[in-house]
Nucleic acid binder design. Sequence first.
DNA 1: ATGTAGGTGGTTTTT
DNA 2: CCACCTACAT
Length: 802
Amino acid sequence: MSPQNNFLFESLNKEQFKAVNHIYGPLLVVAGAGSGKTKALTHRIANLIENNNVNPYNILAVTFTNKAAKEMKQRLEIILAKELATIRFGQPWSTLKEFDQNQLRTVIHQERLQDLWIGTFHSLFSRLLRFDIDKYKDPDGLSWNRQFSIYDETDSQTLLKEIITKEMQLDPKKFNPKKIKWAISNAKNQCLTPKELEEKSENQIDKLIADAYMRYRIALSRNNALDFDDLLLLPVFLLRQNHKVREYWHKRFMHILIDEYQDTNRTQYELIKLITTGDTDSEQFFEWEDRSIFVVGDADQSIYSFRAADFRILIGFKEDFKNKPNDKSDCIIKLENNYRSTSNILSAANSLIENNTERIEKVLKATKSDGEPLKLISCDDEISEAEAITSKIRSLGSKNNSPNWSKFAILYRTRAQSRVIEESLVRWRIPYTIYGGLRFYDRKEIKDAIAYLKVLINNADNISLLRIINVPRRGIGKTTIEKLNEIANKLELPLWEVINNKECLISTIGRSSKGINQFTELMNELTCYVENSGPSQLLQLILEKSGYLNELIMSGTDESEERRNNLQELVNAAIQYEEETENGDAEGFLATAALTTDSDDNKKNVSNSVTLMTLHNSKGLEFQNVFITGLEQGLFPSYRSIDTPSLLEEERRLCYVGLTRAKERLFLTHARERRLWGGNREVTIPSIFLQEIPEELIDGEIPQSGGISLKRDFHLDRLTRVDRNNNFVKNTPINSVRRLYSGPTKGEKWKLGDLLLHPKFGKGEIIHIFGSGEKISLAVKFGDKGSKILDPRIAPIRSINS
DNA sequence: ATGTAGGTGGTTTTT
DNA sequence: CCACCTACAT
């Protein structure tokens, strides 16, 4: 059939059409922000299935987030259902009743899309490992089975810390487990084995890290566990060594699509290459015949190099996948029409990004009119910044009787910046949602419940076992656990094997084994249910039989009520998982739990609230009104990037991503001074990025000071906070609020040119006064000691008469 | 075995 | 400033 007649192609521009109609061979789609790349992707998949007889079973589609995967699947469902509508009902989709529409979608979902693999690299390849991990033969003799646990950052750090302190006998203060984990992760993302890392090491510390990596790997395998990076790294080794496995996946995934290709790292790239080329020698060029690889990306939006993403992979695409050495065929399509933002916003973004050197030349062309100029909001400090943002949102929102808060997004470089903004929003009763931060699955009670399930599935998982062995309290103490753990290590057995052995217990810890017995009996009883129960039922049983729920009910506090609700929510999530996957097993549910982030949660999107998130989290989203905050040197761009050109370019790309999120209005804010971590306020320098946007596009504005009349009130007690261990923190005082409420200062006795005496710096002269009233800081010049910024309420200074 | 006080160290971005 | 860890008291 002639594809041109197909409505699949109706709403596409010329370039999008070319992309969608690409069938075999490699293709790189360079897609600028807002240029309709998701459309190109979904329509191409539909085109493959609908018009080119491709079985969805043979398609692998990689997205950057689970949310994107979900959305893509839904869009695909609708496209195909529309197609089906004309065939089944002989009438267009829009004229069908909702009931019929839904029925068609269900049909498509069940009959056509069930076998389509679509998801993040991590979720897709954890799935692949569930099939084939037992076929992996490790050169060091390590092994895993398909019940493997997935360790999150905390779990793996716990494990690594144990290795560093106990096995290697190093001082964790000198050798920070976090940093070592970071280094190991980096190696894994570059596809390096411990051995390769060791060969590359140049100094003692590098050697130590390689050693830790080696031991960490062994420890993971003893726990039958993998960390996030392993989910990609292990498949690479498996596919490299096992021809049969490689051929299987090569033959299965004939059409590979990858979104956000600029954020691919070496390991992911290796993975894709292995599956695409299959059993051919890398020296040889194979025929594409009936297969394709289709990647979409934008080098200007590459913002994840800190986790080893490398956008040069995108730039090298043509070289990597061209047909023959001399192939001249053009396998690049550029999407440059932007359908999202006003022309002013685009001009600003284009000007900014032109300051980067490493790029694929590309200019976003506006399809919308000029719109309003960008607004620059300069503020005294971070509190007035927050107030200015809030007041702007209020004035724009109040034009409407029922304001649509979800049209607003506040973006920041670091999470720490959100706090002050939250306080301001709470004060003005503006509803907001923070993305990122504490994951649902990271809450204490959820991690506990999941740990039970993990141990039931994989009893070698010591980290999870140790987490729950005394939760709820069974009177098992630290020394007992320590003792047993030592025995387990000595015998090279999982801790579970040791505690599940009555003789062993009695001979080693004797009378203090009561609690342990209670625990093993519980787990043995629960194990009986594993085979015939789904994850939701198992969780329910765990919570009841362990006494976890009872304990929460007994305590009867608001906090425990909240925890119970969360646990109910967890059971619901498991039920939903079972429905979506048609009786998916507990292993699959655990993988979902490990790999789901908060921003994947679609429930949040429907609420009418202002969005707060990091710039990183904003990738792929769009909002009517966007605030980019904290545009100061050292904050954005970050102080760690400021002196390194390549890192600075990444910050600039991050800024570019931020700018291009906005559809209509864009606000840029900065504070003239800022308290970074409660310490002294620092005078700031406006971000270099502000200078890189043409002046004529920006409209300055008089900064709003923090001195709006504030009514003491409400809600502050509802700002329940949770610490990093997920315990609720009671009555956290909110300092900035307190500061704003406390009355006027004891008087402004300081003025320019005054002389003062400081015990450490000596005599100084006030050369500048920042702020006024309560929030005053003095810049004082101390002769040979240089200048300092002082807070006169804190600094031990007294004025002297000249 | 468990709870709490105080000292200390760390602060970019995430699957 | 905040969260974590350790040491100590119960």
